[in-house]
Design a protein around this nucleic acid. Structure first.
Lengths: 232, 232
DNA sequence: CGTGGCCTTGAATGTATTCAACGGGGGTGG
DNA sequence: CCACCCCCGTTGAATACATTCAAGGCCACG
């Protein structure tokens, strides 16, 4: 790992308040690697040798079973992923692949666990990170269990609008087929779901989605912070 | 909180290695309460005032949205629940109700956070607990996304068999309607799913389910530790 | 100008929910 | 002790929701 890479991650909440000695211990065996798109970084079932920190690009976390595949999450910088597996020294539950060209910092899991055992600040930071991740998965699970695919799409659009500071013209950041997988449906079904949303003022043109009247869409989507709020 | 209640929870992994002073700080404002069945202990959206530890009985964690309801998990002693909300000082994402008469230890969230901030051993224990919970939800999410309702039921039965040390006669620990909700389906659909499993040697008599030939069921269920293993 | 990937559309099928009705078991009150 | 009722589970039929398979259009790229 080069000197120049260090300040970048030193500021991460995960390393906040950590002693320089511990941080050095963490980064000594670390390295930074750049991957082209569509590279499978790790496979579910493998043992967790490295904690991954996404520095640039984007990464898809997905899972397979019986010839089916589903997208569990998409990660953007600066994100830490597979933290739980690293901490528990357990096999990955999800696979990961790069979507775009991605720059990734890899910290040896043994070092992470060692520092975690000695540094209180790090343990606290890990808790905060894990608690956040946990709540995110619970929200996603509620989304899946309680909503139909059209409702999930409607709420997704509203979340994207909120993320883009309220602009009613949304640019989808990924292929539709991948969005479909995130939302727990097939590409064909997503296409039809978009069509159903026309009745609520949603217009689709390629990767650009326009929400005609948010109130209309909100009446259908019934968003709630307990599912749709990314923080909290 | 009575003196006699203390040893019971002192042995929890969550408090392992914690100083007596910190433990005393945690339990000073704590209290123990016994609830009858079907009591709603907390409601999603409420702020998390207490960390809950289930000492006896069982508790259902569930969520509602738009007049729909789903069971997220069932907790048994000795389980800690709503830990993530307590740590983040965020609103509950799930509601909880007692299923049977339940004995519950309540630790004020502010105390939990205070001790968490000062005690390294506690922070570590919380991490372990959270990482475990996180992985459990991820597994549940994979189960939902990747499997049909019949496959989910088949795997549930196999998990119950494993939990009961391999006995092919399983006694369902709850009403079928609740099991249906856990498995993410309606009561009617569960009934039909059981019927479909007759073709794989599954016999149902009230709350007793018998697996005729496990190999048959396994061929359908295709269980994997990455979804069905409760540990790891 | 062809080719391949992504998206869309249609039709058929499969999966799951809804609504309504029925039967049995456990509890209550007469 | 029995009649009654309520809740749970089951069943059927109709509907809604979602996937599969096949085909065609469009765009980007070589």
């Amino acid at each position: 790992m080069r000197e120049s890479d260090i300040p970048e991650i030193r500021r991460l909440p995960l390393f906040d308040g950590m002693s320089d000695a511990s941080f050095e211990q963490l980064t000594r065996g670390a390295y930074v690697q750049t991957f082209p798109p569509q590279v499978e970084l790790l496979h579910e079932g493998d043992s967790s040798d490295f904690l991954h920190i996404l520095s640039e690009g984007s990464v898809e976390l997905f899972a397979r079973w019986n010839r089916r595949e589903t997208t569990m999450a998409i990660e953007h910088p600066l994100a830490v992923f597979i933290l739980a597996a690293t901490i528990r020294d357990a096999p990955y539950l999800m696979s990961a692949r790069t979507l775009e060209k991605a720059r990734i910092i890899l910290l040896p899991s043994t070092d992470v666990r060692a520092v975690f055992a000695t540094e209180h600040a790090f343990a606290r930071a890990v808790v905060t990170e894990l608690a956040q991740s946990y709540r995110q998965v619970v929200k996603s699970s509620k989304d899946l269990r309680l909503r139909s695919s059209i409702e999930r799409l409607a709420n997704y659009l509203l979340r994207q609008r909120a993320a883009g500071s309220g602009d009613c013209a949304i640019t989808l950041a990924m292929e539709k087929r991948r969005l479909a997988s995130i939302l727990g449906m097939t590409a064909e079904n997503l296409s039809r779901a978009f069509k159903s949303l026309q009745a609520y003022g949603v217009q689709v043109d390629g990767a650009t989605v326009t929400i005609g009247d948010p109130t209309d869409l909100i009446r259908l989507a019934k968003p709630t912070p307990l599912i749709d709020d990314p923080d909290r």
